[in-house]
Amino acid sequence: MEIVDAQIHVWGTGLPSNMAHWQVTSFGAAEAVAMMDEAGVDAAVIHPPSWDPTSTGLAVDAVRTWPGRFAIIGAVDLGRPDESRAAMARWRERTGMLGLRCMFLEGENRRRLHDGELEWFWDAAERFGLPVTTLATGSFEVLGEVAARHPGLRLSIDHLGGRGGNTTLKDAAAMTHIPDLLKLARLPNVAVKATGVPGYSGEAYPFPAMHTYLRQVFDAFGPDRVFWGTDISKMPCSWRQCVTMFTEELPWLAGDDLTRVMGRAVRAWWGWS
C-alpha cells in the first residue's frame, strides 16, 4: 500500500506565524524525507506556508531533488484577479504544481468569498482543471453553493473541516462543525482532507475521541473523497503514529478502502500520477 500525505509544510526562514506549528526557523525537505522514510510514508504534498516568502521555491527544489516524493499545492492572490487568472491558465505547467489552496477563516479572503467576489476564481479553476483545497470552517454553506454552480470544480475541505491549528479547542468542542460538513457529501465534487486529526485531540495516541468523527466523515463521503494526511509540523505525535492511527486503529477501515484513503484517492483527485 502506498502512503501519500495530503499536506505538509516546508520552510527555510522565519518562525511560523501559527503558534501550533513547531516554532523553529526551518524545516526542510531533507528533514521531511528522513522522517517520511522512518514512518513509511512514500510521498507528500507540500503546501508552501505564507510565513516564508521563499517557501514555494523550496518546494520546487524538493520536487526536483526527490522525484516522485513531493508535489505542490500553491496559491494565488485573490485580490488580483487579472494577474491570478493569467497564472492559473498555465498553473499545471509549473514544476510539481497540482492545484491551489485558499484560506477563508478570516480577513479579506473570507469577506470576498461571502460577498460573492470570487466567481472569477471558481470559473478559472473549473475551466483550467485546477483542484482547490480550502481551510474554511464556518463557510460550508457558501462553498456548497460554489460547488453546485461549478460541477467541474474539484473542491476539498482541509483538516476534517475544522480550524486546524487556529483553535485550541479539543475533542468534541473542536468538532461542532461536523454536521455542517456532512451536508457537503451530497455534492460529488467535494472531498475532505483528514489531515491533522491528532492535533484536535486532548487524549493520547490513538486519540479515540476522534474515531467517531472520522467514521462519520468516511461514511458520508466514501473512500474516494477522504484523504489521509498530517500537517506534521503541528502534530502531537510521531509521523508513524499519524499513519498507524488509520492503518491499525480503525477496524472499519481496511482493504481497498484503506488503500484509497491512505493515498490512491488523493492522487486521483489532484491528478498526481
Results as ranks from 00 to 15, higher is better:
Val76Cys: 08
Arg101Thr: 13
Ala71Leu: 01
Arg163Pro: 01
Val266Pro: 03
Met245Ala: 12
Asn189Met: 14
Ile232Arg: 03
Phe27Asn: 00
Pro49Thr: 08
His177Ala: 05
Trp270Cys: 06
Ile157Phe: 08
His150Glu: 06
Ala6Phe: 01
Val4Pro: 01
Asp257Lys: 06
Ser238Trp: 06
Ile73Asp: 07
Thr176Glu: 11
Trp122Gly: 05
Asn18Phe: 01
Gly68Lys: 11
Gly196Met: 10
Val142Leu: 03
Phe221Cys: 02
Glu106Lys: 13
Met35Tyr: 05
Ala39Asn: 07
Asp257Ile: 08
Asp82Phe: 00
Glu119Gly: 15
Ala254Tyr: 00
Asp257Gly: 00
Met1Asp: 02
Ala185Thr: 02
Gly229Ile: 03
Glu203His: 07
Pro236Thr: 11
Ala59Gly: 08
Thr168Ile: 11
Ala265Ser: 15
Glu31Gly: 01
Gln216Trp: 04
Phe218Thr: 13
Asn18His: 11
Tyr200Val: 03
Glu249Gly: 12
Glu83Thr: 03
Lys183Pro: 04
Ala62Met: 04
Asp158Ser: 14
Ala32Lys: 11
Gly255Ile: 07
Arg94Pro: 01
Leu181Lys: 06
Arg111Met: 10
Arg90Asp: 05
Val63Phe: 05
Thr230Ala: 09
Glu93Met: 02
Thr133Cys: 02
Pro208Lys: 04
Arg64Asp: 08
Ala89Val: 10
Asp171Thr: 05
Glu126Thr: 13
Ala44Gln: 12
Pro49Ala: 10
Gly229Asn: 12
Phe207His: 14
Ser233Met: 09
Trp91Gly: 00
Ile232Met: 14
Glu108Cys: 00
Ala191Ile: 00
Gly196Val: 09
Val60Lys: 04
Gly164Tyr: 04
Ser273Val: 09
His159Trp: 00
Met88Arg: 12
Glu106Ala: 15
Ala194Met: 14
Gly165Ile: 01
Gly96Met: 08
Thr195Gly: 11
Asp82Glu: 14
Glu126Gln: 15
